[in-house]
Design a protein around this nucleic acid. Structure first.
Lengths: 227, 227, 227, 227
DNA sequence: GATGAATGAGTTTTCATTCAT
DNA sequence: TATGAATGAAAACTCATTCAT
């Protein structure tokens, strides 16, 4: 038993080693740019060995990304269940959670979000594509719920919750992608956290329902905007 | 002279043909997926000919993207100069402009924004990379100016203008990328326009300065968020 | 025009060169054993170049075989149209024709016949399989016609013409395959010709209709055998 | 001792299991197409284990084929010793025996005959090649004996007995290979038996010595044919 | 200027075989 | 004895790029 256990653990560890190596290489060179050979080198294994643990270069990539996506998704769902947070606080909390996930592994997160918006997904086997999309949808749904709850409670303006979730996801993706390429002109390290905070803070502000005597500005514009 | 002129025009036209063809293929298959051969076919030229007009597959790609980026940039700059718009209206106008640019050529726009956040840029020659980054920065600066003007005029809250510009750029990128892959769970066609409008509307809302008797909520939170 | 012509001829010649090289290698090592690299070496070209002329290793192989099969087929069909041959002579003529084809290119002939009876066909694209099978059928039909004509003319016994054609084809295949591997114990060079002659001679003999007073031997056995 | 015996039996049994598995896989996929891994799976053993029982993939294949060849050979030899058969009946009996062997295991038989005519043998160690060839020769000799006995007894025409044996072997090989690939245009199941019968029947017919007043036809042709 | 033809340099993937346990 | 794990060695195929014409 002890033996079998150790074997299993070793195997799992090997898998991790490979994933770790793959992470480095994919992050550095992208999916197409990365070669199985280099990943194997990084893992100090022969390329053939990788194929004992993963069917494909694509599967390797997808496994890596799927994990991160699942992690992000779980964290977003937790926000809704955190005790003692009112609706506004939950919105602001999203910024913290997203940043948390970002710091956990910025590079892989970049991979996932990039993959979504590129042709890289095309190469993956159908079921994997679906799993990935499904996971992303879960994350969006989790956020949408926070918004619709706030609306139902009469505390948020009546915007379309899904559109709000899209916006959050978009800001997050956009900021991470740009950060990753370090090509934003505001290149000071760590611009991401405050910008993310600010984004969610502003969103929270904008969600505040008007007092009865709403000013003219809002009346004219909110019509076109509300979905 | 007349001859030389015609030659030059023909040459320019040939270049356009190639770029047009490249656009189709890059858009369909991504940078790595596209082959020079297919682009040449599409342009009804031989692959060798492409190399008379462009040094590289990469240069071809970059040229294409740079144009779009320049167009986007120019349009963003115009917003600031549009007559008869107050600061808030300018912010909302950004949504329209961005959507305009998007409809002008959604796919190339997707390419540009994707390229920024990926390793595809790496293959380009240094000067081209710089040109691209410089262009993107111009766009960001244009937006930042709108925000800082509003702040200077005492009409916007005192948020960091660059962070605000980043946010806008991020939302835009994020939404376009997701749209392109049509994998947003809110898949109704044309979700982009209203979501973009909403985003800018909310931003405008959040920029409104509080009346003197600001409520407690804002006081507690705006400290951490304001840069 | 002269130029275009020469180009075309050169191109055709190149194709031939490749086919010739492929013939050598396939014959020496079989389809699976042969490598594209070695064929390319033999043709003094780079492997990549082969792919300009043939889509596949398989296509290369099939092209080679199909030609030979077509040649064999055509020759068999001619037998029926040769002037001045009676039915019996046509049967004997088959031996000569088959041997002719054999001497034309023993190795490729071996390839074709071997391919038919092996898994090598499986790897080929469907349409090519069909073309090959169709061609083989044509050959069989041509022979079957000779037999059925003889029967219709009342000169041959009433055996099943298709079975007779199968037999001829089988003897031919069998002898060629064994010859090719030079593992027949009767290894004297050129055993094939006389054996083939003998086979067809015997067949001709056996096709002779009995005189009315057929002997007992034939009566008892021909019942089970005639299809 | 009892223990040793049991061990030996177990070992033999394991060998059988492996051979059985190999048979399935080789038959389905051919020699090159079959993988050691799949054979091992089929045998419910690890690939490494196969190498304890067989030096090679090739040896495994050869062992399999050698058995079948030995079986075929033994059966052919028996024909000569069967009591109560005259020379003609022995010839016809060959058809039955060959068909018997065919039905015993059509696929392996196909493998053997195909192997003979292909490059697959090349990979085998020399001694094995010789064993296989020797076995095939035995089979041919057995048939040749039947013919030469008939000739010696004055009942058969004076054809070359070895050529006759070659012919029989060739027809048999040819028919089996074509049957295996089911690509004969006469695709009705079970065409093999009657065709084989017919072939041997015709051979028997052709072996009948002419009565004194031989007709012209035979005289002119049998000269060239008789070896 | 335009191109048909050629290819070098990879890339992913497969598989028979070995060996420490 | 049995095997899980590992790998060396290949092999088919692709493609950006060059160059003689």
């Amino acid at each position: 038993m002890g033996l079998a256990e150790r074997k299993a653990r070793e195997k799992r560890q090997r898998r991790e080693t490979i994933l770790e190596a793959a992470k480095k290489v994919f992050t550095a060179d992208g999916f197409n740019g990365a070669t199985v050979e280099r990943i194997a080198q990084e893992a100090e294994l022969s390329p053939a060995t990788l194929y004992l643990y993963f069917k494909n270069k694509a599967e390797l990539y997808a496994t890596l990304n799927l994990r991160m996506l699942a992690f992000l998704c779980r964290r977003l769902e937790q926000v809704d269940n955190e005790p003692g947070l009112d609706h506004f606080q939950k919105v602001r909390r999203l910024a913290e959670v997203m940043y948390d996930v970002y710091t956990f592994d910025p590079q892989i997160l970049g991979n996932v979000l990039r993959m979504q918006g590129s042709q890289e997904l095309k190469g993956l086997p159908q079921p994997m594509q679906e799993e990935i999309n499904g996971m992303a949808n879960q994350g969006l749904q989790a956020m949408a719920k926070i918004f619709s709850d706030g609306i139902a409670a009469g505390q948020f303006r009546d915007y379309h919750p899904i559109a709000l979730a899209d916006m959050v996801w978009a800001v997050f993706s956009g900021l991470v992608l740009w950060e990753g390429s370090k090509r934003l002109f505001n290149q000071d390290k760590d611009y991401l956290k405050p910008t993310l905070d600010l984004a969610m803070e502003m969103m929270a502000q904008a969600l505040v329902r008007d007092p009865p005597e709403a000013n003219a500005l809002e009346q004219t514009t909110s019509q076109g905007a509300a979905l």
